[in-house]
Design a binder for these strands. Structure first.
Lengths: 229, 229
DNA sequence: TTCGTTCATTGATCTCGATCAATTGAATTT
DNA sequence: AAATTCAATTGATCGAGATCAATGAACGAA
């Protein structure tokens, strides 16, 4: 299939399994890394990786602001891809939330396969568009949402990505701390905690220990996430 | 030149004139639109545009939140490209800040040229990466910066993009209102105004009428933009 | 030029979320 | 099981920025 028609087909149907193929390319071409909990991923290739596939575990992509402020740009959970963007003023870091296996692949490495597999470019474009979309959605959250809306939106996102659904009830095993939630949604630990307590009081969720979170009322949570003032 | 080696070359040198080529493709393939001040750009092609080139004038890309809240995702000034991302919960709009001429090009339309011009995919990737980078940098601004840092950062960005530099002094002709500045940096009109007044009092800038802004002390402004607490 | 409208600035006050400060609780070590 | 440690929760207070309100300045229309 020629690249043009493949791309044309792709352009009209965005949703059918867009991640699989590129992730297999990345896994074949990229540099494999096992990162222990809390460590920062350091790739040894000469080319900076553009796309990272998280084979197992979870990572966070952060921007360091000043000396003590941190903004989490994105999470990468099991089987997800995460796009890096290393030509910026801000220093970014890819850090392991849990012990994880990741594969990083640079654009130069991917380019080698572009002529063999016409779908490769499309998959890359899809990945970048998806990363762009995620980032822009979070601009809305950080720019114009209340604390309640932020936390509710964050939990809904997690529900879609890592929850285990058992008869209509979502169970989330949180791979991140309260601080990391706070640094994602632009709040403080205390405010996140208070919001969670409030959700607990309203019977919307339940917590078991620090990291297990059971969403009891998804509809209510959705309502809170998009509540217009 | 085969696509792979072109891409490989591209991957190692990001900065050399990455916009030009794609913008010419977009202009040839895309749908041309003249949009009056304040109007929302409506393309008639069946395919939603992915990339928009702003030939003249200025546009804003906004996300509508609830009924009365708006978050500005990005600006597109003269000669700039702006990436759209239309598969989201949030409704986006591309609106003219001034009367402008724009060209919108869908991925499907671009794909037709991909086989003829190997650089096309690279340029597209560059554009998307640049959009991603912009968006992520703004996450830091919205998530972890003070009002002063936000306004200073915003003005620096404008300086780099649309200022006329006359013997070391930058003159900016603002194409947006105070409300639009506020909706970009996640503040209110009043706070933006107060921050501008403060910068004026400190002799860092000067205003003439509503829309002319003269930056007198760029170094000082830079200091304020990245000041760690 | 003057009028009228809209936008920007400035002032007064309020509020949400930040900060400071204990306390509680969970997980790990011994 | 007890001790240690660090994270999460809860309470009390503070403050940056929002909201409410009034004034002033710019710009378009007649």
């Amino acid at each position: 299939m020629p690249a043009a028609s493949a791309l044309r087909k792709f352009a009209t149907s965005f949703s059918d399994e867009p991640m699989g193929p590129l992730s297999s390319e990345v896994q074949q071409l990229g540099e494999f890394l096992h990162v222990p909990v809390g460590e920062i991923a350091k790739f040894h290739s000469s080319e900076k990786p553009l796309i990272v596939f998280v084979a197992s575990g979870a990572v966070k992509l952060t921007a360091q602001v000043g000396l003590d402020r941190e903004q989490i740009i994105a999470f990468g959970f099991r089987e997800e891809m995460i796009a890096l963007s290393e030509n910026s003023r801000v220093p970014y870091e890819l850090q392991a939330l849990t012990a994880c296996k990741i594969v990083g692949c640079s654009l130069a490495e991917l380019a080698k396969t572009l002529t063999k597999d016409e779908y490769c470019a499309e998959r890359l474009i899809t990945q970048l568009l998806s990363a762009l979309e995620d980032s822009r959605e979070r601009l809305v959250l950080l720019g114009r949402m209340t604390a309640q809306e932020r936390v509710a939106s964050f939990l809904l996102d997690l529900t879609e990505r890592i929850a285990a659904i058992k008869n209509g009830i979502a169970v989330i095993e949180l791979p991140m701390s309260r601080r990391e939630i706070a640094d994602t949604v632009g709040l403080t630990i205390e405010t996140v905690s208070r919001q969670l307590s409030q959700l607990r009081e309203h019977g919307i969720l339940q917590t078991n220990g620090r990291s297990e979170l059971v969403i009891l009322d998804l509809d209510q949570l959705r309502r809170l996430a998009s509540r217009s003032k």
